[in-house]
Amino acid sequence: THHSTMSPEEFISRIMEAEPPEIYLMEDLKKPFTEASMMMSLTNLADKELVLMISWAKKIPGFLELSLTDQIHLLKCCWLEILMLGLMWRSVDHPGKLIFSPDFKLNREEGQCVEGIMEIFDMLLAATSRFRELKLQREEYVCLKAMILLNSNLCTSSPQTAEELESRNKLLRLLDSVIDALVWAISKLGLSTQQQTLRLGHLTMLLSHIRHVSNKGMDHLSTMKRKNVVLVYDLLLEMLDANTSS
């Protein structure tokens, strides 16, 4: 079935099925961390997660119908936001901790060993606290993640050719489906109409914070790379370069 004819319930169940499996860092962490060892663990994990993120995106109904150019742009724009939202979701029941993976958990204070990362950890922890206060549900989380992906590029490119315009229209219809799905997920929580509207507002407003932290994180990673603290390679390098070379 095409996403435009799917019920919100069906759409959500498809994006729930698309969720990537739990991922492990699978490294012997030598504590205390050094700046280099922590950055290496963070980037190794990110690189593994990125591969799974591409498979995830391809399973979102309608994503593969967009032009390949749009698919590439969307992923290049939003990858760190998606990683960060996933991190927040894993950490939501662990106040003061960042659960990067089941075998890689950090306390806020451990951020001290990497120059400039504590500020980012604090922003990640603050956004995670907001999700905790809101008691974010899994259905809402998967919708927000799809929204980040599909919304990431909307205001940075304007379609020129007929093909680009067609893909842009598909993208907008797909965003409609995701918004409908989120509204449906919220409507299942037994709230008053007004409370539902407020919840929708609060959840979507959090996305602007995630974009902000992602921008900070991107700057931080590119600084770490430039200073040769960490070797960024492979897919992560490609994704980072897309945000910094311009």
Partner: peptide
């Protein structure tokens, strides 16, 4: 071919 392009265009398992 970039890795991203390669991952996007390979058929799902």
């Amino acid at each position: 071919h970039t890795k991203l392009l390669q991952l996007l265009t390979t058929k799902p398992e």
